[in-house]
């Protein structure tokens, strides 16, 4: 199928379709109803369709936005909110970690907090240290939260539809370098991708590259290079969600390939990739010949293009890391 679906359009379409489907879905955030539809122009015209009762702009008050989403969620609505940049999620912490995440369990399963918290994340845009982070790992250790991080337009649409339908709080990450990417649309307009199931995005026999979000297209590009130039067939696993974490799919892949590299746009310490390697070691050590991490340094994300490009592991870095580990000199 041709690459006709733009990532930002996929997000917008998922919101519109789910709002049409379910009256209880509401959508609010900073500038989301404004003419441009947010700073990344993802949601223009949605207020015109559904009206100001269901779609509205808010003050720049991340704590109030998230807290209000929680209060609305536990009383019967299904809010989608936009926290403009993932970095701003520091302000939303209490409401997400202490209120939303725990509601289902603490209440003795009386009610959950069905809400979706969308944010633009990731580096490469020259936005500097405090507009480029990926906040997924701040939340990965919190029981009760789901974390989805789509890798393509079709994945974004299917995962966001699932997130909106989910009865639990879902943190939804949109890599800002993917917004303008085009890809094939889903097979069916109704496609919903279940949260918690990883996807083998490319089969291969020699090693497994596991990533999420923009790391997946980077890994696919690296795998294509490795196949063409080095005869290395990499399998690429797209985790899709970091919580729940689909360890099983990763273990099955490692059982076939015996080698694993986890690629994370973030530091190794406390990252999802190091946690994943720990779990694979615990449950699949007998299948492992090699396992390593490809992450950023233990530093804030730099601004200058030369520094930022060197800091973030992209397709080239993945390919060279695999070659180096495999003891293969570059074919080029």
């Amino acid at each position: 199928m041709s690459d006709t679906l733009e990532f930002r359009v996929a997000i917008r379409t998922a919101i519109v379709e789910e709002m049409e489907r379910d009256e209880s879905v509401v959508f609010f955030g900073e500038d989301i109803a404004a003419e441009q539809g947010g700073v990344f122009a993802v949601t223009p015209g949605i207020q015109e369709i559904f009206g100001a009762e269901r779609v509205f702009d808010t003050p720049i008050s991340e704590l109030a936005i998230t807290g209000a989403a929680f209060g609305a969620a536990v009383t019967g609505l299904r809010p989608i909110i936009e926290i403009m940049f993932g970095d701003f999620m520091g302000l939303s912490m209490d409401s997400l970690v202490n209120q939303s995440a725990k509601y289902w369990y603490l209440s003795g399963e009386q009610h959950a907090a069905p809400m979706v918290v969308r944010s633009a994340v990731g580096g490469g845009g020259r936005f500097g240290a405090i507009h480029s982070q990926t906040h997924a790992t701040w939340f990965q250790g919190i029981p009760g939260l789901k974390i989805a991080f789509p890798s393509s337009p079709a994945e974004a649409k299917g995962l966001l539809k699932a997130a909106i339908r989910d009865d639990n709080p879902v943190i939804f990450l949109e890599h800002k370098r993917l917004y303008s990417i085009k890809g094939p649309p889903p097979q069916s307009a109704e496609e919903v991708i279940p949260l918690g199931r990883a996807n083998v995005a490319r089969p291969g026999r020699d090693l497994t590259i596991v990533s999420v979000g923009k790391g997946v297209p980077d890994a696919l590009q690296a795998a294509a290079q490795l196949a063409e130039n080095d005869g290395i067939e990499a399998e690429v696993v797209d985790l899709r969600t970091l919580r729940p974490l689909d360890l099983e799919t990763v273990l099955e892949s490692v059982a076939r390939t015996n080698r694993l590299v986890a690629v994370e746009e973030g530091p190794a310490t406390g990252g999802w990739a190091s946690g994943l390697l720990g779990l694979v070691a615990e449950h699949g050590l007998h299948d492992l010949d090699d396992a390593w991490l490809l992450t950023t340094g233990e530093l804030p994300i730099p601004y200058s293009p030369t520094l930022e490009d060197a800091f973030i592991p992209g397709a080239e870095a993945i390919a060279s890391s695999v070659r180096e580990r495999a003891g293969v000199a570059s074919a080029r």
Partner: peptide, 30 residues
């Protein structure tokens, strides 16, 4: 938490109830 009686919750961190009620008011408005 006592959903059946409209008790959205009691909140262990000072101020948490303010946001919870604000959000409940978004629902209540409808």
């Amino acid at each position: 938490i006592d959903v059946a009686h409209g008790l959205v919750g009691c909140f262990g961190i000072v101020g948490g109830s303010i946001a919870a009620a604000t959000g409940a008011a978004v629902t209540a408005k409808r």
